[in-house]
Design a binder for these strands. Structure first.
Lengths: 196, 196, 196, 196
DNA sequence: CATGAATGAGAGTTCATTCAT
DNA sequence: GATGAATGAACTCTCATTCAT
């Protein structure tokens, strides 16, 4: 596969992403993607063999980009509290971004593929690693005196479950910026020393 | 509609429920339901006109039954803490019940129908009313000295979001009984006076 | 399936037969049959699920009819020689009937399905039973003095292989009525007493 | 066309032969051959324009080689009976060689191309020339006293039709070595003087 | 000569929906 | 009310054939 093919592959993934954003995962057909990309019916099959495969590649791409973005925005002299706030603000942005998010599609995909062996369930891996990171941040914050927390691990999990709850609510019952702010503030205040 | 028709209608809904439990919402076809009910293709259309309509009726049925069940299990002399614990235990049962739950289907349905006018978004109504109930329980608990909480409303929302987070995680990345116990205990301990 | 459906089923088989006669087996598609029957794409699938299934039913029908026809034309007072001649004449008719024969399709079908368990290979069963019948006729003829033959079984097999050879040649290199007559006469003369 | 091209042409034909052996004629696609040869899609079209053309060239190659082989194995001092036996033994080998034979493909090809003008129907030419050769052998055998036969031409045709019959049966209902032996012996014994 | 990406026609199959009975 | 045959649109996937490089 030449340079050109790699470009086209990427183009297909980016276009398919838009389709998944719009229609979720289950309802997307190869035909939808073919039409969105404006390529021929058979053409798509040269690159991918199913919507499932395409979707997994889209998720890979997405994760890669998100990680890069987040890592990129951490400054040298950030404190634990800074970084946690940054993280929460990122989550908020993501939560409110209704028109351009894969969330629904991802959930639908894992509804069907939950039984994947643990190693292949990227969602689980991401969740667990996020918990770990938050835990470390809390510990660092406690040490530096920024935070007060008796059970950093439990608190980290609590934060992540609330975020998951907000995420699914954003896709089902809808959330307003105010709601998100309120919940995130609630989480944050629970950690702060001056909470008392 | 005669007595007989009402029976048949109910039969269809109960059978359709099983189909939705098994396949979620999006992938269920009228054919699936026809076959599960072992009735004629045209026959189904006499009662319902789409999977969407059927699903909404199934949810109605479900909600009714769940409410009855919960109300029924509250005893006269229960304290706020008792009731909250009862509620949390119910949620846990629901969370771990993988084989017989509409959760996936409900999420999928609202992925498609989120934009419903507020009044028709039953999920939202249920969420809000649950928050209200928990808030009242917490207030009652604070008054009776069972709980300690400075922000009952915020705390109630926090509890509900965690539960939603657990629910979606149960359907995507999987949860173990231990995990659920730990999270629920975490929520409960935060409220208790002897937490300090 | 009602009376009407049975009629339609039969209609489809008879129409499909024409298609198989014209195009053999391998090249026939469900679409070909749909178009020949002038029914809808989905309609055909109500009755049959593949060309293979349809073809097997066509063969069944065909065999039934051929057997009836042959049995019907045997008279009470026929001698062994009469019946054998009748049989050979039937074969000749079949051989020369180029425009209306399933032969090619049958061969193609068994090219693909030769490995069927013996019991399901109808072709083999038909061949073996034909050999048996001819053998009996020869024995009867020998007894009545019409025929002379030292090895009725071998002779019966020889006759059947020659007929198979003629059949395949009729479909590949072509045969003329003269050729067929000559070969059949050769077979018959070998049996007759006045052959010497 | 250079030396190199001729090599490649031959390579394609030899590889295509394997494909035809495996799948018959009708089901083979240009893609099958491209993949078997591991050349480019467009590349194949530089040498051949259809599976039909390729198959005809494969048959040419095959015939050439078979003739060479047979001629090569006739010894100077062979008698007519020797040669006939040799020929029959060759046929037997061919009949039992299930895994490496073009028979099915050839039949399928001629099912479609029977109407070719006589001169192009190689199968017919081969059949007729084989009959002639056998006839000559029988005549020679009669003259030398090895055989007894009143109708050498008829007998030669009979032999060839039996062989064709065996060939098609080998591909459809299956034949065992015993069966082949028995039939060939039957043919041979009919010719021998000591048959009486 | 050779490549392989691209096209588009066409086959198989499934279903929502209608309608005569 | 109830049936189930029938239709036709839609989707998946495969290939012969072409063509720019």
């Amino acid at each position: 596969m030449g340079e050109k093919s790699i470009q086209k592959r990427k183009f297909i993934l980016q276009t398919a992403r838009k389709v998944f954003v719009e229609k979720g995962f289950k309802k997307v057909t190869m035909k939808d993607i073919v039409e969105a990309c404006d390529i021929s019916r058979g053409g798509l099959y040269l690159y991918f063999e199913s919507t499932s495969q395409i979707f997994q590649e889209v998720m890979k791409m997405e994760t890669q980009e998100a990680d890069d973005l987040f890592s990129g925005s951490i400054k040298e002299d950030s404190t634990a509290a800074d970084i946690l706030l940054l993280f929460l603000r990122e989550q908020k942005k993501e939560l409110l971004r209704k028109q351009d998010t894969l969330t629904q599609a991802i959930y639908e995909f894992y509804f069907e593929n939950q039984q994947l062996p643990k190693k292949e369930n990227r969602l689980k891996k991401q969740f667990d690693s996020a918990v770990k990171i938050i835990e470390r941040l809390i510990e660092a914050g406690v040490e530096s005196g920024e935070f007060y927390c008796e059970d950093p691990a439990g608190c980290a999990r609590n934060i992540m479950f609330v975020l998951e709850g907000l995420k699914i609510c954003a896709q089902t019952i809808g959330v307003t910026p105010d709601m998100v702010d309120r919940e995130i503030l609630y989480l944050y205040k629970n950690l702060c020393v001056d909470d008392e």
